[in-house]
Structures are given as C-alpha cells and as structure tokens.
Amino acid sequence: MVRLVGMAVGLLFVFVLSWAALAPREAAEPDPIKLLHKHPREVSFPHSGPFGTFDRAQLQRGFAVYKQVCSACHGLYHIHFRNLEQIGFSEAEVKAIAAEYEVPTIDPNTGEATTRPAIPSDKWPRPFPNETAARAANNNAYPPDLSLIIKARKDGEAYVYSLLTGYGEEPPAGFEVPEGLNYNPYFHSVNIAMVQPLMDDQIEYADGTRATVDQMAKDVTAFLRWAAEPELERRRRAGIATLAFLAILTVLAWLTYRRVWAGVQH
C-alpha cells in the first residue's frame, strides 16, 4: 500500500517536473553590467596565510588613512578608542586621539543633550546621526560602516583594495555612467557613488613612507582587516596550540585503539 501510494506520488512529482523542465525558456539577455564587472585583484599582507601576524606600523598607517580620509563619511561603529592600544598606540596617545572627538552626552545640571570630549571607553562616533542624514548628505548613497566591511564583503581584503585602486578606468564606449556616479569595475554595479577617495601624497605618513594610492589602499585595507577581526592573532596562536594538542591526542588514541584491538578479528 505504501509502495503504491509512494509510486503514485513519485510519478506525479516526476510529471510536474518534466512539464517544468520541458517548458520553453526565453533566451536570457546577457547583462552588460556583468560583463564589465571585474573580479577583485589579489593582494597579500604580512597577516595573510595561516601563520601571519599584523604589521603594527602598517595598521597605524592604515588608521591614519581612515582617520584623515574615510572617517568623514564612514563610521567605525564597533571599534572603541581603547581598541587602538592593540595596534600599538600608548594609553596616552589613545586618550589624546579620543579627546579630538566629541560624543553626545547629557548635561548633568540641565539634563539637556550636549557633547563632551570622547574618552577611551567610548565607541567611535558616527559621522552621521542616522542613515537618513547620511543619505541626505551623500546624494542618497549610504556610506557603509567600515568596522566589519572586510567580513561583510566577498573576497574581503581583495575587494576593498581593488575598489580603492579601481578608479580612473575609462568606461567602454557607449556605456553611460549615470550623473553623480563614478565608474569602478570592482563595484557590483560598476557605478559607485563614492568619488575616488585616494590621491598620491594626499596625506603624510608619520613614519615617512610615501603615501601612494597603492600604499594607502593596502594600509587602510590591513587596518580594516584588524577592525573586523581584532582577535585574528590570538585565534591563530590558539589554533596552532589546539591542533598540535589534538594531533598528539590522535596518535595516543590510535595507539590505545591498536592495543585494545590487538589480536581481535573484525
């Protein structure tokens, strides 16, 4: 009985699916955007690979790029000022950086909204109070928060690096870049609202490194990788210890197994 009902149901599904599979398809138009879209370029860092560690000097340079260029529009919402100690700033330096920013607070005497200088335990202040304000100030485009951007995009680092260095290409003849947008083949729609953010020698690095577009793009990408995965170095160290421990345990378990089963046919 089960088999008969099952076969009937099976034949029904097969019939419906054959009908669907045999139904004619409209030939799909190739999407011109897709043809222009480019895969991100490979980029490598001192922290790439399973045993890599961050280069603190590079992270600090990247932070400088973020602070002087990106932070005008892009937030770093999940980062607290105190986190900057992890990339090699001293406690005093972190306090000084924090004090440059104002964060909202309540006046203890009047109860009215006001601001105070930030302290290390504060979160990085948002450049715009909300998404509507951000869109209003940016030609209706929303500059995404950058603290998770490396994890929130496919090919994380390669994508951000390629996007930052992907300006300047001429769109193919006949391709109209809409008003107010910029051509960048690494962006998903190849038309991005952000104007080219980096120019050669736009900022001056404290360590004397020459601030080329490529250098700045690399540095800020490294910094954003840290911002997205501050636990990266600890995670890898713990991982090596765990794998080493488990490898030994596996060998011991295998020896135990061989002993227990010695002479038993199975």
């Binding site: 399973p50 994890k151 929130a152 995009r153 496919k154 994380g156 995670r235 890898r236 713990a238 991982g239 090596i240 765990t242 794998l243 488990l246 490898a247 345990l249 596996t250 378990a253 295998w254 135990t256 197994y257 227990v260 089963w261």
Partner: peptide, 29 residues
Amino acid sequence: AKDFVGLCVYLLAFAAVVFFLPNSLGHPD
C-alpha cells in the same frame, strides 16, 4: 577506543575550520 580515534580526527577538522577559516561556511552578507 575506536570511537575516540574518530572523535579526535573530527575535532582536528573542526578546530582547523574554527581557528583558521571560521567564516568560510557562512555568508558575508
């Protein structure tokens, strides 16, 4: 004894992903 060997190998694979490729099975979005 036999299952313990399998468990160790399983944990090795699990630890390799957790510590070195933790987001490989998820979605960036």
